[in-house]
Design a protein around this nucleic acid. Structure first.
Lengths: 250, 250
DNA sequence: ATTGATTAATTAACCGGTTAGTTAGATCAT
DNA sequence: ATGATCTAACTAACCGGTTAATTAATCAAT
């Protein structure tokens, strides 16, 4: 009642402190100051992971901060200590996911393989990343659908930091392969999304697959099978049918 | 306080009435009964359409019943008059969407075309349906991701009524084409989902596409372009390369 | 070394806005 | 006058976010 006027100020002060924290850490001769429980990074990581699961399964609107806190074995207020609000936490989860993926695929981009092998390596890396993080595809798909004006404050950043760079590199590889005559004349602007679709869909639709085929689509065997199918599908759609291995036939 | 005990009973009574309504309608000599505003079917349809838009954009959790009512130019209580609750309304929207799609693709299944042309016709029909209902892909994708145990009461029904029959028919066509030697030896269990992925992804990710390519991906021209790209992609992945013509099979 | 200030880490309890769902009644075609 | 259609106003519950207090690690000066 009496303190209602100070809400905003308190908030702003806290945010400033939070923003300064990293620099402060680094400026002080040594990091590790430690508070009561002494495991800030662990708590943060636990929150991030619990949030990733909750968000991927329920979406931002469906996700419950109480559930995240509970799953992370942490008090709910701690979420708001580390992250400004639900939306910011969601953003951190997204950056985590896309950051990991970008790292993996860029290792492939920076290798020096011929186009054909590079595409295979790219698809494989992309696929394997999602196969070992089965909740990320839903996260990705969800964010893509939310990206209407005003709905998502993250989408611009994500496109700039992840989608654009990755699309750019894959596009280059495709153009090179086409010029060398090993790829069919496809339009990267359509082919790249199609590839991603084929890779991602299986995982984001896993629950339906389970019902349709009456077995768990996420066992290692099934995933290996899917991997082969994806590579076959994309290869057949992209590579020029080689006649009896008779070199570059333009 | 005093009436808290009667809530459930009132609710049950209402539900019974509601469940009986469809039969009653049909039993009475003619529909069009009309109440105060005199447009029951129109109201119902308006609600359904507004709900489809809201659900596709925000998901069930994010959708606001107030927003749906407002968009349908109808009082919120009317939603609950026609539909038991939010979840049931959502289910009706889903059946609407999937029902329309099923009708379209089954017309193709029942035609007598050779496998190759039939697949092309199927993909075209599927694509065109979504192209003219751009909010349905998101609806589909959303429901697929929600289909965890306990999350969705609709998924079993949807799989049984739509996914399974459609998968079954497409699967038959694929097997036939493979046997006739016009298709590559693909596994329908993987190929069908891949096809759907390629068709649907472009629409459900339209907002990202807009940012990535800096133009509206849903103009008629762009959609036509995408259509060609999808058919090319799937054709190349499925059809045995015919030696005479390295065909982009339109 | 002991003490006391400082700050990071953490929590229990609470608050108030939002939202699904309800109610009691109005309207009107038949 | 009856029952289908429709509405304004209401309520209970839920849920994101806050607060004020607490604990523990570090530091500074005794």
């Amino acid at each position: 009642m009496t303190r209602s006027g100070s809400h905003k100020e308190t908030r702003r002060r806290r945010e400033e402190i939070r923003e300064l924290r990293p620099q402060m850490r680094r400026n002080r001769h040594e990091l590790h100051r430690m508070g009561s429980r002494g495991q800030p990074e662990e708590s943060r990581a636990a929150i991030l992971q619990a949030a990733a699961r909750e968000f991927s399964e329920k979406g931002i609107a469906g996700a419950r901060t109480d559930a995240i806190a509970h799953a992370a074995r942490v008090n709910k207020a701690l979420l708001y200590y580390y992250f400004k609000d639900k939306e910011t936490l969601y953003g951190a989860v997204l950056d985590n996911a896309f950051g990991g993926m970008k790292a993996k695929v860029f290792k492939v981009f920076d290798s020096d393989l011929p186009p054909r092998e590079k595409v295979v390596a790219y698809v494989s890396a992309y696929f394997d990343f999602f196969a070992s993080n089965p909740m990320y595809p839903k996260l990705v798909q969800r964010e893509m659908m939310r990206a209407r004006v005003g709905d998502s404050v993250h989408i611009e950043r994500l496109v700039k930091n992840y989608f654009e760079p990755i699309y750019h590199r894959v596009s280059e590889i495709l153009h090179k392969g086409i010029k060398e005559g090993v790829f069919r004349k496809v339009d990267p602007a359509h082919f790249v999304p199609s590839m991603i679709a084929v890779i991602v869909f299986y995982f984001s639709s896993a629950p339906v697959m389970r019902r349709l085929f009456r077995f768990d689509p996420l066992t290692p065997e099934r995933i290996a099978e899917r991997r082969a199918a994806v590579l076959d599908f994309i290869s057949a759609a992209l590579f020029k049918p080689c006649r009896a291995n008779s070199g570059v036939g333009q």
